[in-house]
């Protein structure tokens, strides 16, 4: 299968913003999702609400700027690209905050900042993971039968045993296990595909079924 990369719509928000920085919907959704993550990160470092507003806005803006300016190298993974721009974004802002500690020695403050950076990048990546997973779940959900999905949900999200789920859904225990495994595998494939940037969602949706071992 071949496609012209520039013609595809990126499935993830960050990908969409990278492709078309003026996409208002993507921008809004991006602010909601990643803004929340930045809020959490800020609070975990004990920043004041006023600062949090400031940081959220500026970091997001800067992130968008970085994405527009910093070229994505298609031979590397999009994840690596994201981590790089995230680090660059953070660098612009961490120094801004470095002096905001309560007057401790600069060494301590720097150390703190380095940890903060790591955490920021990690949480950013996790948020992206969550986005990918949610997207994959929505997609897979539409491709399997209702009871198959329910079996998967029961065993993973709710942590029920195969027997409990089987009883609830009136299925055979073995069928529940197969359903869970099957959805899990489909999710894996889908996440993997979504992670590669950019790929059209709709185009490949039907192909995954015929993947061979």
């Amino acid at each position: 299968m071949s496609y012209d990369a520039d013609m595809e719509t990126s499935p993830t928000l960050l990908g969409r913003l990278r492709q078309s920085p003026a996409d208002q919907d993507a921008w809004q959704a991006f602010m909601d999702r990643y803004g929340g993550m930045i809020d959490r990160w800020c609070r975990s470092w004990g920043l004041q609400p006023a600062d949090i507003d400031d940081i959220r806005q500026n970091v997001l803006l800067d992130l968008a700027k970085q994405m527009a300016n910093f070229q994505y190298d298609a031979t590397r993974s999009f994840r690596a690209y994201l981590k790089t721009i995230c680090r660059r974004t953070w660098c612009d802002y961490c120094k801004n905050r470095r002096e905001m500690g309560s007057g401790s020695s600069s060494f301590f403050v720097i150390l703190k900042s380095v940890q903060a950076e790591e955490q920021f990048v990690t949480e950013f990546e996790e948020e992206w993971n969550r986005e990918l997973l949610e997207m994959a779940m929505r997609e897979v959900r539409g491709r399997v039968q209702e009871h198959t999905w329910r079996a998967f949900e029961g065993m993973t999200r709710e942590g029920l045993s195969g027997a409990e789920v089987a009883e609830r859904l009136g299925m055979k225990v073995g069928a529940v296990w197969v359903a869970k495994s099957k959805v899990q595998k489909m999710l894996q494939d889908t996440v993997q595909r979504l992670e590669a940037e950019p790929v059209s969602m709709s185009q490949e949706a039907d192909d995954t079924q015929t993947v061979n071992p």
Partner: peptide
Amino acid sequence: REMLDEGG
């Protein structure tokens, strides 16, 4: 594997 890869 075959079973997992088969459609719904």
